[in-house]
């Protein structure tokens, strides 16, 4: 049986980059470990002694095991402190936790990823995984929305992604130089047709879920092929602290990735 002692492993920040004004990307190397294995869609607990810990999704490709990357948005005390850390500083790491994306279910299928804001961060791990295993899926479509062009994360990677996927962007506010969709992400849904029988994975703020369900669930995407990554503020990652429960489910153990048909009637999942 798995044992958890809640002692963070020491990791070194080997790279720090700003993705936008309030989001940074950190590349972390866990000390004393040759490899750090994880699945796309899993999360870690990042901890700064004296400040606390927070659950954060992994953004890098699982093939690279010497280090991993995370994207952190500055919102609370711990994440603000993480912002002040520099390359060469140390940070605590717990995990990885959670089930990750349904890698065996997407095999050979048309895959559509729907990202809102920082929801792109965990999906990037999957995108990079597909970049290295292009035959994994039949096709890849990425819908990515943000408040404004500056808030679109990993902007300098989109041209690489377009080599093996179709990337559609939308922003809620912009100036006249913006050529893509304007409005919330559901603007893209009307403009871009997806193939029947596609698998869709959605990661973003809860207000984004309803438009996705209304537009796709049980229509071009079957309910069992539509996945949501749910965000909760876990304090343990191992199903004890109760902060992430949705009815009978634990986001940290049973999720964070859930098929829509499994949570459709769960009144706490989409609250």
């Amino acid at each position: 049986m798995k044992t958890e002692n809640y002692i963070p492993q020491k990791a070194k920040i080997i790279k720090k980059e700003y993705l936008c004004d309030d989001v940074i990307s950190l590349r972390l190397k866990v000390l004393g470990r040759k490899s750090f294995s994880f699945l796309p869609g899993q999360f870690v607990m990042l901890s700064v002694l004296g400040f606390g810990e927070v659950p954060i999704g992994i953004t890098s490709a699982p093939k690279e095991k010497r280090y991993f990357e995370v994207a952190v948005r500055s919102v609370g005390m711990v994440t603000k402190k993480i912002f002040t850390l520099k390359e060469g500083d140390y940070i605590g790491v717990g995990g990885p936790f959670g089930n990750g994306f349904p890698l065996s279910e997407i095999k050979g299928k048309d895959l559509v990823l729907v990202a809102g804001g920082i929801g792109l961060a965990p999906l990037r791990s999957l995108i990079k995984h597909i970049a290295e295993n292009r035959r994994l899926v039949k096709s890849l479509t990425i819908f990515n929305g943000a408040r404004c062009p500056e808030q679109l994360l990993f902007r300098d990677e989109y041209s690489d992604w377009r080599d093996f996927s179709e990337v559609s962007l939308s922003v809620e506010s912009c100036d006249s130089s913006w050529k893509d969709c304007v409005g919330n992400i559901s603007e893209i849904f009307g403009r871009t047709k997806i193939k029947r029988g596609s698998i869709m994975i959605v990661c973003g703020p809860p207000p984004m879920f309803d438009p996705v369900i209304n537009h796709y669930a049980g229509k071009s995407v079957s309910e069992s092929d539509l996945y949501f990554l749910l965000e909760r503020k876990m304090k343990c990652g191992v199903g004890k602290c109760q902060h992430c429960t949705c009815g009978e489910l634990y986001v940290c153990l049973d999720g964070p990735v859930f098929a829509y048909d499994k949570i459709k009637y769960n009144q706490e999942a989409f609250k």
């Binding site: 809640y6 002694l49 004296g50 606390g52 304090k235 343990c236 004890k240 602290c241 109760q242 902060h243």
Partner: peptide
């Protein structure tokens, strides 16, 4: 048994 996790630095010796 639900719980929270908090760090408590020592005053005057925050490390």
């Amino acid at each position: 048994y639900c719980y929270d996790v908090k760090d408590k630095p020592e005053f005057g010796a925050e490390s």
